[in-house]
Design a protein around this nucleic acid. Structure first.
Lengths: 193, 193
DNA sequence: GTCTATACGCGGATAGAC
DNA sequence: GTCTATCCGCGTATAGAC
């Protein structure tokens, strides 16, 4: 064959990577196949030798991005609850996460588009989401707390991205940190956020 | 004039109403001017006698929808904190709110699109959001708590919309209710969610 | 103010050469 | 596997009749 073995798989991963960044930044539906391919320094005709359709890319992209987020959570080195959650709050609820959607978690960036997708997409999203949930349960100890903290993280990043002023963004982030610590019983009662 | 006085203003409100529903359901960018106008039983040519551009509609729509959400929050008849928050949790975190995005709050539906919009949109969004925040502060007593509860509400609806199974949706909603009550010190310590 | 018709660009997808 | 070229439908916006 004219191309090295494993070349196609490698190129596919590269495409998923770059497409994920673009989709998180500008939205998946708003980004054309041309843009995805140009970002990967190819032309749109070559797209269909990797994915059968744009919708097919969406599925693959969601799977890849959710696993990336899961991996990020697994990188947290702490075992102790307070240390674990502090690490996560500083990392996830950082102002840089608000500003750089392309480098951030898929959840605040593409959940609305998933919410409007067909059942196949939602099923896929759910099963990966549940794996993330299990990781949170492992550290937080409660199933409901795990879901609620995930919602809080996603909601905070999303809301912070909708406002214009950095001051307000930071206020939103700090408020969410405070609330999560509060619900875990980790706040000093004498200190306000 | 051939048309009654106030006719245009009335038609504009009708357009904003219907466009808001369609945008919340299918996304604003994904919905064509034709679709908006057809839903209002008009043709696309007439659109530009009400709005100078699609982007202009987006601004008007955001303003109208945010004020609608504010109005919904103001309808809460309770004064007591526990009663007020219970009412709000049952109303906002209802499964029907997850299922009927077109009839629901703009925040979980269109925040991602706002996040990707220009600064003018974000400034507008922020100023209306701050009015909503003030209302929450009035009842919850704390600025940070008010932001955090808003994030939690938005995040929970958004997440619930991304999963396929109703059981999981409900789990997410109940978890968020539990966490908000927890952060307000309203949960019975002996009862799990 | 609303209609029909249309200009014009973008986006998804396919065909065929290399 | 990737390229160029192209088909075709959709979407924003405008022009002109009523």
């Amino acid at each position: 064959m004219r191309y090295k073995a494993g070349y196609k798989e490698q190129k596919r991963q590269e495409l998923l990577n770059i497409s994920g960044q673009l989709a998180k930044k500008n939205g998946f539906a708003n980004t054309g196949v041309d843009s995805f391919m140009n970002a990967a320094q190819m032309t749109s005709g070559a797209f269909y030798s990797h994915f059968s359709s744009k919708h097919d890319l969406f599925k693959a992209l969601i799977e890849a991005e959710l696993q990336k987020s899961l991996l990020d959570w697994q990188k947290n080195p702490h075992e102790d609850l307070a240390a674990w959650i502090d690490f996560e709050l500083e990392r996830y609820l950082a102002i840089s996460h608000v500003q750089r959607a392309d480098q951030g978690c898929i959840l605040p960036a593409l959940s609305s588009e998933v919410a409007r997708s067909d059942d196949e997409i939602k099923q896929l999203y759910q099963s990966e989401l549940i794996r993330g949930h299990a990781l949170f349960v492992k550290h937080l100890g409660r199933e409901d707390l795990a879901w609620a903290v995930m919602c809080q993280l996603v909601g905070a990043i999303l809301m912070a991205r909708t406002v214009a002023d950095d001051r307000v963004k930071i206020m939103i982030l700090n408020s969410s940190k405070w609330m999560i610590r509060q619900s875990l019983g980790l706040n000093n009662p004498n200190v306000s956020a």
